[in-house]
Nucleic acid binder design. Structure first.
Lengths: 203, 203
DNA sequence: GCGCTACTTGACACTCAGTGACAACTTGCG
DNA sequence: CGCAAGTTGTCACTGAGTGTCAAGTAGCGC
């Protein structure tokens, strides 16, 4: 879903270089920290020129955070695909299950990336900026689902609460907690459910 | 509160230069946009050298976002000062009332700064990073207030929900809405209240 | 197979952000 | 008056990010 099949050899080569760059970047950053690694080092480790790095990624943060963009589209698509009668709390839990499943899937790599992002101010800032985009998209999809009028604060609030639950689960999973991110998310969503599914919503 | 009285002349001069820099920065950015303004231009407009700019502010973003740091301390202090028996939704509403009041107070300037922040990706990222710090502090203060055990997700969730309400009110106030930020916040907090004040909290 | 177009790459040069070091100046205090 | 502390300007440097141009290679029609 996030990796459309590469038909051309040119496109496959391009993807290969991108993958080489992210792998080199993550390996170096895991060892020395985000700030200590220069783009020259990343490019050299991947066997390309510095200029080529910027043809694949817009910035040093981007090479770590890029995949979040595609994930945002998947999240919103998942929400839109949920049955119309489903309560918002359940639909949102399924939507945010997409990135959580990605964490639970690639355990070692995911923990490394999450730890790097949450532990680096510059990366955390970019991460939150992406989440802000997720919130806008989720709110739009929710408003579409529920047919709310424009002035209503509920869609954006619901999206924000769901992302708060996601964030809290992610933080807890990252520092110390050996729990599964899914069960942490379930606990977090149980807290916000009373607000998401308040009775007078349909009135 | 955010501006301790300057005793020394040296300190007063320093504050004056800082104020001159922020005013020059905001004036230039309001005209040409954040990215188009260089630090050389800001320093020149304030009548100081480029190096001096960096002795007052750590980065170009910092000159716009600095005041948020002091505000974070005020917010947490306000929360801690609320009566112990007060429900979390009310206490948090009062705490987040601090920055909202700052908006309602300096109308023209506040709208300018908020519009600049919400409309500039780099500034939005820094803004959200600061809010993430607010969330940590608020969660710690809440855990202290309620005497929750370490594994409990509630304090961080409650802080996140309150900040979601704050953010939503701020966004709505910024684009279009001529409402008072306070009443927007009241509407937003009414949505999250059922989750914040769930009955089995004290059990 | 030949040639043309499109795409990617490397190399060079440039602007701007941010930092370290040093000398000159001013304030605060004895 | 004289000294310690703090602020400022200048110079020099690293690193991020961008524009431009020439060279090389895949894709495709002839």
């Amino acid at each position: 879903m996030t990796t459309p099949p590469a038909t051309n050899l040119t496109q496959r080569m391009r993807r290969l270089v991108s993958a080489e760059l992210t792998e080199a970047a993550l390996r170096l950053m895991a060892a020395d920290g985000f700030d200590a690694v220069t783009i020259d080092q990343i490019a050299a480790a991947a066997g390309v020129s510095r200029r080529t790095f910027f043809r694949h990624y817009a910035s040093k943060e981007d090479v770590v955070v890029r995949f979040l963009t595609d994930m945002g589209a998947d999240i919103t698509a998942t929400l839109s695909a949920r049955p119309a009668g489903e309560p918002p709390s359940v639909a949102l839990r399924h939507a945010l299950g997409v990135p959580l499943a990605a964490c639970a899937g690639a355990h070692e790599r995911a923990r490394q990336v999450v730890g790097l992002i949450l532990g680096t101010p510059a990366l955390l800032a970019r991460f939150l900026e992406r989440q802000s985009q997720w919130q806008d998209d989720l709110a739009a999809a929710l408003a579409e689902r529920l047919g709310t009028e424009d002035g209503d604060l509920y869609p954006r609030m619901a999206a924000g609460m769901a992302l708060t639950a996601f964030d809290t689960a992610l933080h807890r999973w990252n520092d110390g907690g050996h729990d599964d991110p899914g069960v942490l998310a379930d606990r977090a969503f149980a807290i916000i459910a009373p607000a998401l599914d308040a009775v007078e919503r349909t009135a």
